[in-house]
């Protein structure tokens, strides 16, 4: 039961990160290795604000906005000039991730830091006692994901995004500007990752290398679910989320080995079913 409830909460937060990653790939064909950095920027910005004595809610909003802004800057300054060179984008975004890591380490050092919880105390769900911050994180993440999915499927804006994802040239013909859509999607994806960073900051720890795990997990989810498939992403998030908690609870030193399990999942998927659960056939 422990694993089930915790797994569900973790899945929701992981899905928040993976959703943005998947959208950016689906829409812009961009594999953004700096996606995990948005998660980190969100967490650290919220932390920096709360250090100055700002109310927690304000800090949280600042965290999300900072991540969004970082997304816009990344798109404008780095990705746009080299957008159609897949390998260059990979290398450049990885370089950005390292740059951010180096900057965070410079300003905050390598020590672990933590944000105070938005709520404190514990709550019992289905006989499982949980920290309230975790529950809050899971619920906020869930609501956000549902909102994003609704926007994507039910609104004209969402239709525009899906049009670009399906066929960039054709969408241009009907009056959509793919460049603009890519920018928006990257900014929103960055904001979602930043939100995930803010939400987990009270119970996770902030370190300069915290970008790596969400990035690998997002990557694993997107590969598992199929690149560019939104339902696949959500489904795979649940799988990876439960796996994450299962390993953390049942394996010795599980917390450290979570990353390894993720990697194993990726490799197995790549060998057995390269297009993922629900993905289109890999190019």
């Amino acid at each position: 039961m422990d694993v089930l409830v915790q797994g569900a909460l973790t899945s929701a937060v992981i899905a928040l990160v993976a959703l943005g990653f998947s959208l950016v790939y689906g829409v812009g064909g961009i594999v953004n290795l700096a996606h995990g950095s948005f998660f980190m920027i969100g967490a650290y910005s919220a932390y920096a604000m709360s250090e100055t004595g700002a109310p927690l809610l304000v800090s949280a909003v600042v965290g999300v906005l900072a991540a969004t802004l970082a997304g816009v800057l990344l798109e404008r300054l780095v990705i746009t000039p080299i957008r159609h060179q897949e390998v260059a984008v990979l290398i450049a975004t990885l370089a950005v991730a390292i740059l951010v890591q180096s900057g965070v380490q410079f300003f905050y050092g390598g020590l672990e830091r933590q944000l105070p919880g938005f709520v404190s105390g514990a709550v019992t769900v289905f006989g499982v006692t949980l920290q309230q911050t975790r529950v809050l994180a899971g619920l906020v993440a869930l609501v956000t994901i549902v909102t994003v999915l609704l926007v994507l499927t039910r609104t004209p804006t969402g239709r525009m995004v899906r049009a670009v994802a399906q066929d960039e040239e054709a969408s241009r013909l009907i009056g959509v500007r793919p460049e603009r859509v890519t920018l928006y999607v990257l900014a929103i994806g960055a904001g979602l990752a930043g939100l995930a960073g803010v939400l987990t900051a009270p119970y996770g720890v902030l370190t300069p290398t915290m970008w790596l795990l969400p990035l690998t997990q997002a990557f694993a989810i997107v590969i598992l679910g199929g690149l560019g498939s939104i339902p696949g992403t959500v489904l795979a998030s649940v799988v990876v989320g439960f796996l994450d908690r299962f390993v953390a609870f049942n394996v010795k030193d599980g917390d450290i080995k979570v990353g390894l399990v993720t990697v194993a999942v990726i490799l197995a998927t790549l060998v057995l079913r390269p297009q993922g659960f629900l993905g289109k056939v890999a190019r």
Partner: peptide, 22 residues
């Protein structure tokens, strides 16, 4: 004092090189 800045510097240089002179 801050060895971590070195790799950051190289990362920044690399980004610039990739954009200006691929």
């Amino acid at each position: 004092e801050h060895p971590e800045l070195k790799i950051g510097t190289f990362a920044l240089l690399l980004i610039i090189v990739l954009i200006v002179q691929p």
